[in-house]
Design a protein around this nucleic acid. Structure first.
Lengths: 345, 345
DNA sequence: TAGATTCGTGCAATCGATTACATAATTCAG
DNA sequence: CTGAATTATGTAATCGATTGCACGAATCTA
């Protein structure tokens, strides 16, 4: 139907060469103003659109960036992607989405695939099962900017955008202390992953700063789901000196905890306070809304995108930027209790 | 660093021409088996990867598909995208994500942009504010397959994947009737949009089939948020013959309704039953879990992708396929009541 | 006014893969 | 054993945009 208009068509129409048209469109200073405007105008008139492939083939730049996440239908990740898309789209970049399903092998394959597609950059959150860094090195070797967000792997030459998980853990724990809890448990997911390790360290530090001894029995490792949270509560309540609060590194486990506490007839927050982590949408919709730590994922996505753009501006310079965003404690009902010493927050 | 290997490199290594290499790699029957295997092997040995841009430039096919949704961080849409990605990725397609923010103008711009990027197809859910179909016609004119999912616009030459919203509305309403409700209200969002219109029609049909007169006072138009649901309940309860149940076309409005009923001390589900629509994740996490209609979004995404792939197989044939998926009623606490005539479902 | 600059364009190669057409090598029919 | 048919490969154009180099024309210098 509608044949694509090329610079040759414009050239023919104006009786000049394609080279001149190209230069005019690129605002090359060697072209006279007269020709420039003339070319611009006819280009517009003829509905000219630059062919991305020809450009990509010539320049090696695709104006695409690859984004790799474990799953895209997890609020945290889809919100990050939203942030990335909003930041990059106006700059003419397209965002290519890939999921790893937390599978290290699929991650490697995906990376290879995106490199082959010659994306201009890769923004990603590392899969839980990833051990190797070979594929990341390949990215760097191919001179493609690489930005990790949230789940990172410490590597030379890679920029990272994270939230301060230590601070998040600290805030959550301190808040529980502030509302009068003294026997605070912590549910973690996998201490081998930096994000969880840092939350745990924040938890420990908050205890220490408030002269509460760390109790190893109060540390429990769970999966990030409701079931795991239920089991964790059952286990914790069997202790002779059972806790009166829990800071869970996962909102889902926290939800399971609350549900189980309900079943057992234990009053939340009065007899047992709960704080989660991530600010999943459901946490605010629960009847007993859940206190949690917000990670501002949209902002994280935007930041990651901006870091990428900076890197693109300085193609020679190897920038390695580490941005750390601040988490925000969101106090809701599951931990809002009035005590002798504390006002409701 | 690592220079890209091209077919010319392979050709040089084997002392043949690039044409032969190309043909061998494409399994052209005119090439002898001997050369084929030889080429294949050296290609593998040299880590050859086909240059997508050269191919795209030559063929006009990008092996990219554009996906346009209002927002990507809405569970429904991100799940659809997940389905699309899972179906298309193994076939060598990359998925380019764009959001419209429900803005018709941004939608037009995005379409133009994707066309310019020469995507091989566009899968999309139409923005709420879209009136014009000019940009859709442009897609068709450029001979690019177009598939609408969920939010469609009736047009010639466009394939659609929807769920049977009528059936969903019918099932939800019939279920409420089955548990003994007789004065069933309906909260809709915008009857101008087919999805909501069909849900409403299903609602009406279910009433009619069970000899319940349709009452115009029970129809209420709300936005799709919690606030709107609260207001709707307030308004409905002011009626002299107040309803005893509501089928809301939005889970969010249904949530608002439940919260407001709680505030007013009205027992859910015994005194007032509630069914939502969409099966948003939060509906199952609420203490009083919400009955709702599931739209199997991942399946919808996969189906849309498959329809696209079929279209690609028959480039000459103009296929126009209309797939309708069945919704599934999910009964949870907000409508599970025991009545004289009904067993608990 | 001759020679040197500057300015604006054109020429042609390039990016990497595909493919119609040409050609060389082999096989086959009679 | 010769011409035709078949098979395997090479030649060169093409997709669309960019860009180093060349070149003619205009302007300037002394």
């Amino acid at each position: 139907m509608k044949e694509k208009v090329t610079i040759y068509d414009i050239a023919k129409a104006l009786n000049i060469t394609a080279a001149t048209v190209s230069r005019a469109l690129n605002n090359n200073p060697k072209i006279s103003e007269a020709t420039k405007t003339l070319v611009m105008e006819t280009a517009k008139k003829m509905n000219y659109e630059q062919n991305r492939f020809a450009l990509a083939l010539k320049s090696g730049k695709s104006h695409n960036v690859g984004v790799i996440v474990p799953f895209i239908n997890r609020n945290f990740f889809s919100s990050i992607i939203r942030g990335i898309e909003e930041e990059l789209y106006p700059k003419g970049y397209h965002v290519i989405i890939c999921q790893t399903h937390e599978d290290a092998k699929k991650e490697e394959e995906t990376v290879q695939n995106l490199l082959n597609a010659q994306v201009d950059g890769i923004l990603m959150s590392v899969s839980k099962t990833t051990q190797q860094v070979r594929h990341f090195k390949k990215i760097l070797k191919s001179n493609t900017p690489l930005v990790f967000f949230d789940r990172i792997k410490e590597m030379d030459g890679v920029s990272t955008v994270t939230i301060n998980d230590f601070q998040g853990g600290y805030m959550a724990t301190k808040h529980l202390i502030d509302v009068g809890c003294t026997r605070i448990a912590h549910a973690t997911v996998d201490l081998a992953l930096p994000i969880y390790k840092h939350r745990f360290e924040g938890y420990k530090q908050a205890l220490e700063d408030h002269d509460i001894a760390y109790n190893d029995d109060y540390l429990i490792t769970t999966k990030s789901d409701i079931d795991a949270g239920e089991k964790a509560i059952k286990k914790l309540l069997k202790l002779k000196n059972a806790p009166d609060a829990i800071f869970s590194a996962s909102d889902y486990a926290a939800l399971g905890a609350i549900q189980q506490l309900n079943v057992l007839g234990i009053k939340v927050p009065d007899d047992f306070a709960v704080v989660g982590f991530s600010n999943e949408p459901f946490t605010q919709f629960m009847e007993l809304s859940m206190s949690t730590v917000d990670q501002s994922p949209v902002e994280m996505g935007k930041t990651a995108a901006r870091v990428f753009l900076e890197q693109m501006k300085e193609p020679n310079l190897k920038i390695m930027k580490k941005v750390e965003l601040s988490p925000e404690l969101i106090v809701r009902k599951s931990s809002s209790k009035l005590t002798a010493n504390n006002k409701q927050i």
